[in-house]
Design a protein around this nucleic acid. Structure first.
Length: 398
DNA sequence: GCCCTGATGCCGTATTCTGT
DNA sequence: ACAGAATACGGCATCAGGGC
């Protein structure tokens, strides 16, 4: 039995044979410098963007790349190098069906707030700190929170697509709440205030104010209204289109804001006579004649109306700065307190979800108190309590 | 006054959170 | 685990200032 003697390992020759690397290759170029190459996860063979002075440097670089691939952090360097500006422009271009005004908005946000900071930056170089610094600067520069939120959301949406496209690994927009915009609630007018406006405004705009309030129509829906849309005998107004202002195209008719926007709204009898008079005096002839026009019989333009007519009327009525759109709120609030159900409110406003209609629930708080008060009285009566509480004076709703 | 465009408000739906 | 509520997100509109 031969004793087991540990075998001495064969000595490696000092002249080591080149070992095939597990990942990537390094070769010496005629210049004497070293080039690293590797095959990406996509199977494409890529050289390093630069050469290296030593073989070790090249190998270290390959190690880093391999780590990225293993950590699933590798991205196609060519893809990530697309500038944000270019990618964003394509992104907007490729959105299937944005409304024209939205395209204009995105273009503006891009130009004004995004491109100056990120336009030339490759996508893969935009990191969280850049986004945070950019946002802070906008706010410091006095850009409103609402606009900053919009710009942030657009940036986030674009970069989120870039993640889906595997152009970048991760969306650097992760500031909590940065995309939210909290706009203060708009004021609600009283009926008396609406009528004060109606009394002082140029007569040709009376019906506009009334319909804006009591039919809750939007500005664009009112200005797009044609004679055939009004049925004053039935007391209804149909919303079939709207008028919007587009850069380079002036005022154009478009479909309503959403599918639910196409609707028929009942008009209170209270304003029917006023509307009839308006049709006779001011509306353009013909089925497709515009219901509301300026003194030149042309379609109404919000800028001119606001500055020359609306502002003056508010001033003459002794009212603070109120938006025309606030009339719509007023109408909705009125309808809510008139007992309109959520579904009825939605139909009236041209909404498809309950969310907005629920806002008008706040107006029914008054009614809730009223209900509570009556319950209180009933209960006291049933208990035979002597001194019945005096009812509080009827609160003027709105 | 017209028009462009900067700025802000509103709303539908998807996603996340939360109480059970 | 899940339904309903809350919030985020994306998109569409109105409001408003300013140049011509």
């Amino acid at each position: 039995m031969a004793a087991d003697v540990p075998q001495e390992k064969p000595r490696r020759s000092s002249k080591r044979k080149p070992v095939k690397r597990r990942f990537g290759r390094v070769r010496k170029l005629p210049s004497g410098r070293f080039q690293a190459r590797y095959q990406g996860p996509d199977g494409v063979d890529r050289p390093a963007p630069q050469t290296f002075a030593t073989k070790t440097d090249a190998e270290i670089w390959l190690t880093k790349i391999e780590a990225q691939i293993l950590d699933d952090e590798w991205i196609d360097p060519d893809a990530g190098r697309i500038s944000f500006g270019k990618y964003a422009a394509d992104w907007i271009e490729e959105r299937p069906k944005l409304r024209p005004r939205t395209i204009e908005l995105y273009g503006y946000l891009l130009r004004k707030h995004l491109a100056p900071t990120f336009g030339d930056k490759p996508l893969n170089e935009i990191k969280g700190p850049h986004v945070r610094r950019w946002r802070k600067k906008l706010l410091d520069d006095g850009v409103s929170e609402v606009t900053v939120a919009k710009a942030y959301r657009l940036l986030k949406a674009i970069l989120s697509t870039a993640v889906d496209d595997q152009v970048i690994k991760r969306n650097p927009c992760r500031i909590k709440g940065a995309g939210q915009e909290k706009s203060p609630e708009r004021p609600v007018l009283t009926v008396a205030q609406v009528y004060r406006i109606v009394e002082v405004i140029e007569p040709r705009y009376r019906a506009l104010v009334l319909l804006g309030t009591f039919a809750s129509l939007r500005w664009g829906e009112l200005t797009g209204l044609q004679r055939r849309d009004l049925d004053l005998d039935a007391g209804t107004v149909k919303v079939e289109r709207q008028l919007i202002q587009l850069t380079g195209k002036g005022l154009v008719f478009t479909d309503p804001k959403s599918a639910a926007g196409r609707r028929t709204v009942a008009i209170p009898d209270l304003i029917i006579d006023e509307l009839k008079a308006h049709m006779k005096d001011f509306a353009i002839d013909g089925d497709e004649g515009l219901v509301f026009v300026g003194s030149d019989n042309g379609p109404l333009r919000n800028t001119n109306f606001n500055r020359r007519v609306w502002a003056k009327a508010l001033h003459d009525a002794g009212l603070p700065k109120i938006h025309f759109h606030d009339l719509r709120h007023t109408g909705n609030t009125l309808a809510a307190s008139a007992g309109a159900s959520i579904r009825e409110l939605m139909a009236r406003m041209g909404h498809s979800s309950t969310r907005a209609a629920l806002i008008y629930q706040h107006s029914t708080d008054e009614r809730q108190r009223e209900v509570a008060r009556k319950l209180d009285e009933l209960a006291r009566g049933a208990l035979g309590a002597s001194g019945t509480q005096r009812a509080r004076p009827q609160e003027q709703a709105l």
